[in-house]
């Protein structure tokens, strides 16, 4: 069986200077699984996500994405960093959606979506444009291709950003608090796009504060605190009946 769309982490540690943000992260995410990560700020949940697509490097531990060691290759005694080219290639298989959208302001919505396929994969411009139009339509923004990010609302920008990641045909999509920077009334439109995506069998890891989304869409839920995974289980199960006292305290605050 192919390992595409899977994530495996074993004993991952990561420090920023003297501060250890990931202390002992072990997780396994299956292909097509929708996994939500919740937890207080500073618990390391964003860092986990950023490690999975190489925006941060892990200090030690095993990290396999799509079944292969990510960013490094293993020899008898050490892990050696991949060449930038190989790392970039691995990254194209993992899409990332940021809290602050990070669309390229110098490109239109369509150019943003086309940027990955055309600039990185060298795809044919016409075909990439056709695909980009389809993706725009799939996030409910048909006809918005010529708009620049600054002309779009936050919710629209985030949907374009999702389409931009999808244009690379990744096996895994990572969402780093995708709705935290949005007006409350725009949250729904982004979550709707994400729910749509979940139905299509994409592996999704979502760092979020949207408990409603987690309850409705997620297969599994991870609660993180202080660099550790405190609790992990079926999303609805954990939300309604948390086992760990720390999870209980957190959920009492946010629900």
């Amino acid at each position: 069986m192919s390992n595409d769309g899977t994530i495996l982490a074993q004993k991952i540690r990561k420090s920023f200077g003297p501060k250890t943000v990931l202390k002992d992260i072990n997780l396994e995410i299956a292909s097509g699984e929708i996994c939500c990560i919740i937890g207080p700020s500073g618990s390391g949940k964003s860092t986990v996500l950023r490690c999975i697509n190489g925006l941060e490097t892990v200090d030690s531990g095993v990290l396999k994405v799509n079944g292969e060691d990510f960013g490094y290759y293993e020899t008898a005694h050490a892990y050696h960093a991949h060449s930038p080219k190989k790392l970039a290639e691995q990254r194209t298989r993992v899409g990332m959606v940021f809290q602050s959208f990070n669309l390229f302001p110098n490109m239109t919505a369509l150019e943003n979506i086309m940027s990955g396929p055309v600039l990185v994969k060298g795809a044919d411009k016409k075909q990439a444009a056709k695909r980009a139009h389809e993706l725009l339509a799939s996030v409910g923004l048909a006809g918005f291709g010529d708009y620049y990010p600054a002309q779009l609302s936050g919710g629209q920008q985030q949907r374009v950003a999702i389409a931009r990641s999808l244009a690379m045909d990744p096996e895994i999509m990572l969402f780093d608090e995708p709705t935290s920077a949005l007006d409350p009334e725009k949250v729904g439109e982004v979550l709707a796009v994400m729910k749509d995506l979940a139905k299509k069998g994409m592996t999704m890891v979502v760092v979020t504060h949207e408990m409603g989304f987690a309850r409705e869409v997620a297969d599994s839920l991870i609660f993180m605190d202080d660099g550790y995974i405190v609790e992990r289980g079926d999303a609805r199960e954990v939300l309604s009946n948390p086992q760990e006292p720390r999870t209980q305290a957190f959920l009492e605050q946010v629900l």
Binding site: N53, G54, L55, P84, K85, A88, E89, R91, T92, V94, G95, M96, F98, S100, N102, L103, F104, P105, N106, S115, G116, L119, V120, A161, R164, S165, M168
Partner: peptide, 27 residues
């Protein structure tokens, strides 16, 4: 040019030169 822009380019797998020409310099 914001850090987020560079991260977005990185996450799409852009090479250093591409990032410079298409993302950093225009902005």
């Amino acid at each position: 040019v914001g850090k987020g822009q560079i991260e977005a380019a990185d996450s799409l797998g852009m090479s250093g030169g591409m990032k410079m020409r298409k993302v950093i310099i225009p902005q």
